[in-house]
Design a protein around this nucleic acid. Structure first.
Lengths: 195, 195
DNA sequence: GTCTATATGAAGATAGAC
DNA sequence: GTCTATCTTCATATAGAC
């Protein structure tokens, strides 16, 4: 302990990202100024540049971190078993993970066009890896004769779109518990691909 | 015929909306300047204010027109019959209509947060009317014993999310024809709600 | 690490001439 | 109806003091 002014690198950095996350989600990347972020953090705008080289990097960091956390959490939740069991695990994991991070999810989808081409390609690569995990499950299920899906790539995108849609309406403390939501969507997903 | 300068109200107006539509869809409302729109149209920025009181009204007009066209087209495509037949008609209509208007659809979803609260409420009201049409079909199907859906409101949102997701990947001239896309999604929708 | 001050540019919108 | 010119505000980003 010592300095009471300056030297807040370890806490200011995360606070900058948290403020940017919240503001980008609420107003959109292009509509948020560095001054607004600084005000939320409680510093002057110039100080932000100790934590990010520019606004674009701030956005990319948020999206990349989100996608990496998604892939890591998915790897941890991985389950052995039949394609049916794995599909249920994927469905429930997707809903739970995404419902807990509405701001990150919103940004990762809405702000893709504000990434530079290089950054866009990197985020899309991570997203593609996630989609491939679901497609592998569907392919396995077709092989096992459990699923009837004529195009596993399209079915993958259809299922993910349906599940991610939960975020447009689900709010904690609402009419349905997360368990109930998971059950309803799993019921629909299971039927939609079943033989 | 007469004046070669001035007096282009009837063609410049639509051109302003067309340019705004395309630019908003590509870069986002907040990232597009009135000067960019004017440049696309081929006039100076000040001239735009003959066609819209401000940038916000331009966005709202585009979104309101889109939602009204959606509801009108849906009313025209309305079909009698069993809940199953009506659900198929809705599914195919939704995919066809939305795939033909990717820019309008994108804006209507992505730029909701850039509307004033009053304008937001009006757009949401129109969207709600569209959702209610699907929910009525699902409720009828449950009544007929054709569908097994525990929560028609959630199922409505799930189906619409899945169908609208087509726009994230479908491109005319791609691997699949629109007919094939309709068939694949109808197969999944049908199964997902069936008893 | 943060501040103040500033360079540089662009934004939305309006005024008034033609 | 469109132009040029402008008002006013705000943007990102940097420089240099503390």
């Amino acid at each position: 302990m010592a300095r009471t002014t300056g030297s807040h690198s370890d806490i200011t950095g995360p606070r900058v990202r948290a403020a940017a996350l919240s503001l980008f989600a609420q107003h959109g990347f292009a509509a948020v100024s560095m001054r607004q972020i600084a005000k939320d953090v409680g510093v002057q705008a110039g100080a932000l540049y100790n934590y990010t080289p520019d606004k674009q990097s701030l956005l990319f960091d948020l999206m990349q971190t989100h996608m990496q956390e998604l892939l890591e959490a998915r790897a941890e939740a991985f389950e052995e078993g039949s394609a049916m069991a794995r599909l249920e695990a994927f469905t429930r994991f997707h809903i739970r993970f995404h419902s807990q991070r509405p701001e990150e999810v919103f940004i990762a989808y809405m702000e893709l066009r504000n990434l530079t081409p290089e950054n866009f390609a990197r985020i899309e690569g991570l997203r593609r890896r996630y989609e491939d995990e679901l497609e592998a499950i569907l392919q396995a299920g077709v092989g096992e004769g459990l699923f009837a899906v004529s195009d596993t790539k399209i079915a993958t995108l259809a299922v993910i779109a349906m599940l991610t849609g939960v975020n447009t309406w689900y709010r904690e403390g609402g009419r349905l518990s997360l368990d109930e939501v998971e059950r309803i969507y799993w019921d629909m997903v299971r039927k939609s691909v079943s033989a």
